[in-house]
Amino acid sequence: MNRPGASDQPGTSEGKTTVPEIDLSSYTRGGDGSPHLRGYVARPEGEGPRPGVLVVHEAFGVDVEMRRHADRLARLGYLTVVPDLYSEGGMWRCVVGVMRSLSAGHGRAFTDIAAGRAWLLDQPGCTGRVGVVGFCMGGGFAIATASDFDASAPNYGMLPKDLRAAVEGACPTVASYGARDRSLRGAAPRLKAALDEEGVVNDVKEYADAGHSFMNEAPNGPRPLRVLLRATGSGPVPEAADDAWRRIDAFFTEHLGRAR
């Protein structure tokens, strides 16, 4: 059943037939989520229903790159939503609180993610099978919330402090990391070992020539930080990104059902 206020809200259509900005606050009302939770929606073309995918954004928020990722998932045939975890004040006011929530394993950000999942399940165009895709900080949430979804794709995702507890009961997981990512050195084999130990079906791959944010199409984040990010090997690596997307689509097709 659709909840009041769950439908698309007026806004900029950006040339699309449906409005990409939605109000998700009806799903957080009365709880500890964001009172004014917003989201970005990308819808596949053609007749549904389709599997749903929730994207958890990286530390820079729902920027151009995160919208590109959502649009790409829609082109692959997935009904996609990106809850804005910074809805209550933007990146600079919210990032610390969201990171604290990730570290604690509970809090507003987790409620906001659950709200996005509930919205997908309420849509007549969704099959009822929902995956989660996350990038960087969002990849950490994709690991931490994997027990709530049918498939998970953390990309250069931060590992929870208690990794073993985080993957207990996790859904099938396809993960991608860059060997040149100094901030996540050793994360890929650690995640795979934990998933294997728990008996979780997984496909974890580390790309030798990639660093952090290698799936982005262009450098992102505040301009003063971009020089530093480039110096640490962060940024697009198209060949690795294409392979990672191919693996995600194949894995999600297997575990969520055919998207197109």
Results as ranks from 00 to 15, higher is better:
Q9G: 12
G11K: 12
E14Q: 14
G15V: 09
G15Q: 09
K16W: 14
T18P: 01
V19F: 14
V19D: 14
E21D: 15
S26Y: 09
G30R: 02
G31F: 00
D32C: 02
Y40R: 03
R43F: 01
P44H: 05
E45A: 14
P49D: 09
P49Y: 02
P49C: 05
G52T: 00
G61Y: 12
V62E: 02
E65F: 07
L73A: 02
A74K: 00
L76C: 07
L76F: 15
Y78F: 13
Y78C: 00
V82P: 00
D84K: 04
L85C: 09
E88F: 08
E88C: 05
R93I: 08
C94M: 15
V95N: 11
V95H: 12
G97M: 07
G97C: 08
R100M: 11
S103A: 15
S103R: 15
G105R: 05
G107N: 05
D112P: 03
I113T: 03
A114L: 09
A115I: 05
R117N: 07
W119F: 12
L120T: 06
L120Q: 02
L121C: 06
G125D: 15
R129G: 02
V133T: 06
V133D: 00
C136P: 12
G138L: 10
G140K: 08
I143F: 02
I143V: 15
A144H: 04
A144C: 10
T145M: 14
T145W: 03
A146L: 09
D150I: 02
D150F: 01
S152D: 04
P160T: 06
K161L: 13
E168Q: 14
E168R: 15
A170L: 10
V174W: 04
A175W: 02
S176F: 13
Y177F: 15
G178Y: 06
A179R: 13
R182Y: 06
A188M: 06
A188N: 02
P189G: 05
R190C: 11
D196H: 11
E197Q: 15
V201Q: 13
N202Q: 11
E206V: 11
E206L: 08
Y207C: 08
N220M: 12
P222D: 10
P238M: 01
A241M: 03
A241D: 03
A241I: 01
D242K: 13
D242H: 10
A244S: 14
W245D: 04
I248N: 02
E254V: 11
L256N: 01
G257K: 07
R258S: 14
A259L: 01
A259P: 03
